[in-house]
Structure formats: structure tokens, C-alpha cells
């Protein structure tokens, strides 16, 4: 464990807590893409299949349970909570995310570390996580004025994988045979997708104005 990875995990945890806070405090999920949340639930379930078979550390197991639990709770809340579900605007959340699931699964069938059930699903979850934010970014661009908590949620979600890139560089430099290419390349793509969001986030922060993404 290195500081970059720990910072990444904490930033990831913060992003999920910010989202839960927004939904719980405002009893609303307006501006949040249910499709992105569903993709994240699939990512965590597909990636943490080894939860009960491989023990790495208490930290690892606890964080996996938290990520799976929170992502399922958010999807449940947005779909079934009698108050919150009414604030979900499916007319703007129209990204066809099933194509992302299919595309990532097909890619995982061809590019993986080992052709085993668990490894193919692990690669699938890595690819899917890289593109899972797309429905949310599209929704942000569609719904002009976005509340602050939603913007913070997307910011922390983007920042966490940037920390992971530093972690992979650090591990590549310090561990002899560290070759985590699937995760590193997908992580670069994932962070690059946030590039324009980060740019407009920084501009809005500098001008102390609300985030305005170009439509």
C-alpha cells in the first residue's frame, strides 16, 4: 500500500459519501445519472467476486464491502425509494449504457490477463469503470445548472483514478515485475474522459462561479 493508492481509495470513498449525502440530505437525485450508478454497481460486483475466496487484508475486504454496499444502496434508492425515485428524470438520462456493458464485455473476452471466469470479469470491470462516467458527464452537459454536491461528486470520482495513476507509476518504479497494463491503460482513459470536466471545474473554481459545461 502506498500513499497514492490510499489517497485514491479515500477520494473514491469521499465521492460515494458525497453522493449519499446529496441524496439523503436533499431527498433528491436530480442531476444524478442512474445509468452511471448502475454501471458502477456492475463494476464492483464483477470485480470483487474474489471477496469470499481470496483474503488480501482487512482493509481490502472492508472497502470492497463498502463499495458494493453503497453502489447497490444508491441504485436501490434511485429506483425504489418512494421520495427519491420521483426526482429521477429519466428523460435526460438517455445514454444507451447497455452498449458500454456489451462493448467492455467483448473487449474483456479478447484482452485479459488469464482466460478464466474471474479474470475475464475482472478485466470487464476495469474497462467498464473507465467508461461508466459517460452517462453522468452527458447528463451534466444536458442539465445546465447542476448543484454543487453533484459537481463535487464527479470531481472526487475523477480525482481518485488520477491518484491511482500515480500509484501505478510508483509501483512500476519500486516493484521489479510490476506490470498492471490493463488497469493502467484503462485508468488513463478513465481520467482522460474527465479532462474537459476538470478544465471547466478549475475555471469555475478560479472565477468563483458555478460550473458551466458547454452544451
Amino acid at each position: 500500500m502506498n500513499i497514492f493508492r490510499f489517497a485514491g481509495d479515500m477520494t473514491h470513498l469521499i465521492s460515494i459519501l458525497v453522493l449519499l449525502l446529496k441524496i439523503y440530505a436533499t431527498k433528491s437525485c436530480s442531476g444524478i445519472s442512474l445509468k452511471t450508478q448502475e454501471l458502477y454497481a456492475i463494476v464492483f460486483v464483477a470485480r470483487y467476486l474474489d471477496l469470499f475466496t481470496d483474503f488480501i487484508s482487512v482493509y481490502n475486504t472492508v472497502m470492497k464491502l463498502v463499495f458494493i454496499g453503497c453502489s447497490l444502496a444508491i441504485v436501490w434508492c434511485m429506483r425504489l425509494h418512494r421520495v427519491v425515485r420521483r426526482t429521477y428524470n429519466k428523460d435526460v438520462d438517455t445514454f444507451r449504457h447497455y452498449f458500454l456493458v456489451l462493448g467492455c464485455f467483448l473487449l474483456a473476452l479478447f484482452v485479459h490477463e488469464k482466460f478464466t471466469f474471474q479474470e475475464v470479469l475482472w478485466a470487464f470491470s476495469i474497462y467498464l469503470e473507465a467508461v461508466a462516467i459517460l452517462p453522468q458527464l452527458v447528463l451534466l452537459q444536458r442539465s445546465g445548472n447542476v448543484d454543487n454536491l453533484t459537481v463535487q461528486y464527479v470531481f472526487f470520482l475523477g480525482a481518485y483514478r488520477a491518484f491511482y495513476i500515480l500509484n501505478w507509476i510508483y509501483r512500476y518504479l519500486t516493484e521489479p515485475h510490476f506490470g498492471r497494463w490493463i488497469a493502467s491503460v484503462a485508468g488513463l482513459v478513465q481520467t482522460a474522459l474527465y479532462a474537459d470536466f476538470f478544465y471547466y471545474y478549475f475555471i469555475s473554481w478560479k472565477n468563483n462561479a458555478k460550473l458551466q459545461l458547454p452544451a
Binding site: T53, N60, E113
Partner: peptide, 10 residues
């Protein structure tokens, strides 16, 4: 429980 380091990251 086998200890693996194949995917030790979250």
C-alpha cells in the same frame, strides 16, 4: 483462504 497479490488493488 489463499493469500494472493494478483489483484491486491480495489
Amino acid at each position: 483462504l489463499k493469500l494472493v497479490d494478483s489483484h491486491d488493488e480495489l
